[in-house]
């Protein structure tokens, strides 16, 4: 398969990788979810994991997060082998995982609270990120008073507040309606630009992947392997609407669709 608008890299430059995945396999009893995955996630970039449903995207992300033990292989973050969750990684959950009994403020500051940071300090940090995700004025609301999109903004602010280098996002927008989703993607791009962190992003949506990603890792069907790595050539300085009409954007979407199509039947 040739790609006119996207280039394929077999093994990217390891020296700048924030996260290295080495020979990761995962079996759930008889189910072989992942088979010896090797991947590098470059620092300061947004890399997306894209693949058919049930191929093991969440599993891989949670292994990187240290929430799931791999059957074999190892993950290194900044060269250090992962043995569990750590402060240099923060997770954004598909179902938001907000504490319903806590206000927006407490939810956003929760990672800092767990670190033992004093109330005034953590609240001022939380307030900053609440503003960053556009929720100023909602500090004292409870999650059930917010829409799905707003709840995920809380989840995002919580992840930013702990100032982790690596952000892991598992289909963060899948429970958000289409209009909010687009707005959200634009905000995410702005935050990626501003925060200069390493993002690992899981999504079902090809358009979303091409819109937000520096790199897209295509995973094959179970047992999952890396089938392709694509770097969309999209001019992100353009306006959101211009990007969505950009020929590079549209072509990359089409290429990925052609690559994934045979999994659907």
């Amino acid at each position: 398969m040739t790609l006119s608008t996207a280039s394929i890299h077999a093994l990217p430059h390891a020296e700048s990788a924030a996260v290295e995945v080495r020979g990761i396999s995962k079996n759930y009893k008889e189910v072989e979810a992942l088979r010896s995955i090797d991947l590098d996630f470059p620092r300061g970039k947004l890399t997306t994991l894209l693949g058919p449903s049930g191929c093991g995207k969440t599993t891989l992300l949670k292994i990187i997060a240290g929430l799931i033990e791999p059957t074999s292989g190892e993950v290194r973050v900044n060269g250090k082998t992962v043995t569990g969750p750590g402060p240099e990684r923060a997770f954004v959950f598909q179902d938001f995982a907000l504490m319903p009994w806590a206000t927006v403020m407490r939810n956003v500051a929760f990672g800092l609270e767990l670190k033992g940071m004093g109330k005034a300090e953590r609240q001022s940090i939380a307030r900053h990120y609440i503003a960053e995700v556009g929720l100023t004025g909602f500090e004292d609301k409870y999650p059930h008073e917010l829409s799905g999109g707003m709840r995920q903004r809380v989840g995002l602010a919580r992840a930013f507040a702990v100032n982790a280098e690596v952000l892991l996002l598992d289909e963060p927008f899948s429970a958000v309606d289409e209009q909010n989703r687009r707005k959200f993607q634009e905000d995410l791009l702005r935050l990626v630009e501003k925060e200069r962190k390493t993002f690992i992003f899981v999504t079902h949506s090809i358009e979303e992947a091409v819109y937000v990603s520096d790199r897209i890792v295509l995973l094959s069907r179970r047992p999952s392997r890396v089938s392709q790595i694509i770097e969309p050539k999209v001019d992100r300085t353009a306006s959101p609407d211009a990007i969505r009409r950009d020929q590079g954007y549209l072509d990359t979407v089409e290429e990925i669709w052609q690559g994934l199509k045979h999994y659907v039947d």
Partner: peptide, 21 residues
């Protein structure tokens, strides 16, 4: 919810905090 527990673990909650909070 399983994700609430994972949230606690991923943000570094001790066992004590995980149960208490």
């Amino acid at each position: 919810p399983k994700s609430l527990i994972e949230m606690g673990r991923s943000y570094g909650a001790s066992t004590f905090a995980l149960y208490g909070k």
